[in-house]
């Protein structure tokens, strides 16, 4: 092919993809279903964000599924402790693609007021890939809604061509840590 024909071919392919992308992403971002997974104090602000004053049903998110098999978004709200971390990672692995993680509150981002203690994990991004961080202790419901809007903008910017869940070479399953005698151990690694 000559260069002009090659460029025309590319443009034609991208135009089709942008229309498909637009419809695909519009459907996905208008109905993100969070998983009802509250760990600690931030969970209560999440429930308030679901209640009638700061409704998040107007974003299409009112269906909080208790089961990970039907959810799109894992809102990690609260301190993740070492005893609970294997369960969080296992729940993430059970969610079907496409899936997102939102770290809500200072404890989920970096350990919060309980950083560097013998039972708290310094942020859930040690074990899971996080897409949006919402800071605060606890963040107000309006801050959580701002986090959701950022997530929607991120979803709208994604395209099928480069999405990780349709590519075979990207590993999306996270290894589940094991409770060892002094802390958490990832499988395959020894003690340090």
């Amino acid at each position: 092919m000559t260069e002009e024909e090659h460029i025309a071919e590319q443009i034609r392919r991208n135009v089709i993809i942008t229309t498909i992308d637009k419809i695909y992403n519009w459907g996905r971002r208008s109905s993100v279903w969070p998983m009802g997974f509250g760990l600690a104090c931030c969970a209560f602000e999440m429930i308030c964000a679901a209640a009638s004053r700061f409704d998040f049903a107007r974003f299409g998110m009112e269906m909080m599924r208790p089961t990970p098999r039907q959810a799109d978004l894992l809102i990690v709200s609260g301190t993740v402790t070492k005893k609970m971390a294997p369960q969080v990672v296992r729940l993430y692995d059970q969610m079907p693609e496409p899936k997102y993680v939102l770290a809500m509150g200072a404890c989920a981002i970096s350990g919060g007021p309980f950083k560097d203690t013998y039972n708290a994990v310094n942020g859930i991004d040690t074990y899971l890939p996080v897409d949006v961080y919402v800071p605060g202790c606890p963040p107000r419901p309006e801050a959580l809604l701002e986090g959701f809007i950022k997530l929607h903008q991120m979803i709208e910017g994604q395209t099928i061509l480069t999405s990780p869940w349709y590519r075979k070479e990207v590993e999306r399953e996270m290894p589940v840590p094991i409770l060892g005698p002094r802390g958490l151990v990832l499988p395959g690694e020894g003690h340090e």
Partner: peptide, 11 residues
């Protein structure tokens, strides 16, 4: 229990 043990007494 103990899934939310945040070491408050040691802190």
């Amino acid at each position: 229990m103990g899934y939310l043990h945040r070491c408050q007494e040691k802190i």
